[in-house]
Design a protein around this nucleic acid. Structure first.
Lengths: 231, 231
DNA sequence: AGGATAGTTCGGTGCAGGCCGAAATGTGGC
DNA sequence: GCCACATTTCGGCCTGCACCGAACTATCCT
């Protein structure tokens, strides 16, 4: 065996994700929010004791981070890297052999619009990326994007100030492969800012117990007026 | 549990990667070449029978593809997506809790220069990306890159013709997070073409049983003269 | 044809780890 | 102080699966 060390840790990380209960936990955290152990137990579909064990393992491996608040413990994905790795795995899983389509109402909602870590995905995410691209506000080249001067002005009018360098290290405008649309949507600081702004404007709101988001009445007109989008 | 279907398949894929033997197999295939079952058994560190079972599972799941040639069966990663997912997992694994540094000579070679699926990574990969960027041949913005007109000319003189659209679907110039350098290097069709060209020129050559590549004597002067790189 | 090499299938062993019930710890509210 | 609720720890069960030895098939070589 060549490089046992890197192989081992690769296997260790993948193995952590490779358990159904833990995969459900991580999927539930993919919207970037922090959830309590109890909520995660519900998502995982196993008892609270079992979940506790899983959470300990994930925390030890630094895949998730924990914050204590009173008698609750809030868990969230440790870094955006983790989310990216999981999204990449989801993309692989989506192309798998099983082309089964037991499409439920939840699935439809997910495909229409959802959060992906801290930005928007699904048809809405794609539509936003397209709208910004065709109007020349963002240039997407292959796997990433750059904001034009014109785009910067447009976004500032929309209420997003990209100048304040949130965290210097985080890329401004990345793209992220959408597992349902098989195309790229906007991630990075821009993607996150867009998402927050849409929530602030009341254009979208979170569905209960899901990453899916619903487009509100005002969102329907807002997206149409500002971006020319109608889903 | 919310979306049992997606969670399950996510878990299934991760679980396949999450076995040490299979992770070693996939790691060995990360350089994009096709290897025989016997070679993979050696990389995996288990017997041929056991390896056969693993290969069957990976093939069933479409993570790897197989091609029969005489009494050999050649296995390779099924799609670039798979390589990307594994690379993302490696990036996560590299940041893990264990900061152990049992750096061997092989490890040093890997960090200096190696192939990553079908393009170059390690210090050499980073240096190439830097050189092309600072000379204005490629513009890297956050997570991807675009080739400038000037760059297109330069590359053509170097012996790379990006015009012939290899496969229309594959992105021209993507970036890929380097797990050893923690920075991006060039992937996509451009990255692959650069890699092939350097092999053709005899500037680099593959190490035995490893993803590492060695920089030849002529490579030393070639990289210096053409790109201003000296490692 | 006979021998060597590549790979797979079968059967049986053994261990890792996921699961839950019960009980313990910790925290907030009254 | 006492109860309710959130979460963890302990102990034991049980399944899944990675592993190998041995035997079998397929292909190449001479």
């Amino acid at each position: 065996m060549t490089n046992i060390a890197s192989g081992n840790t690769l296997a260790a990380v993948a193995s952590l994700i490779g358990d159904v209960a833990r995969a459900n936990i991580l999927s539930a955290l993919m919207d970037g929010r922090a959830l309590t152990a109890g909520e995660l137990a519900w998502h995982a579909g196993v008892s609270a004791q079992t979940t506790s064990g899983h959470l300990a393992k994930l925390t030890d491996a630094k895949l998730i981070a924990v914050e204590k608040q009173g008698r609750h413990r809030y868990f969230r994905l440790a870094t955006p890297d983790i989310a990216q790795a999981i999204e990449a795995l989801m993309a692989v899983a989506a192309t798998g052999p099983k082309r089964h389509r037991p499409v439920g109402p939840k699935d439809i909602a997910m495909r229409t619009a959802r959060t992906c870590y801290d930005h928007l995905a699904g048809r809405l995410g794609i539509a936003l990326a397209d709208a910004l691209t065709t109007k020349g506000h963002v240039i997407i080249s292959d796997g990433a994007g750059a904001v034009t001067r014109k785009g910067s002005k447009f976004l500032s009018e929309f209420g997003i100030d990209l100048a304040k360098a949130d965290k210097g290290s985080r890329p401004l405008c990345k793209t992220c492969l959408d597992w349902s649309e098989r195309r790229s949507h906007l991630a990075g600081r821009l993607g996150a800012a867009l998402c927050v702004r849409c929530f602030d404007l009341g254009w979208i709101r979170r569905e209960k117990d899901s990453r899916a988001v619903a487009i509100t009445r005002s969102g329907q007109s807002g997206f149409a007026k500002t971006f020319g989008i109608s889903l």
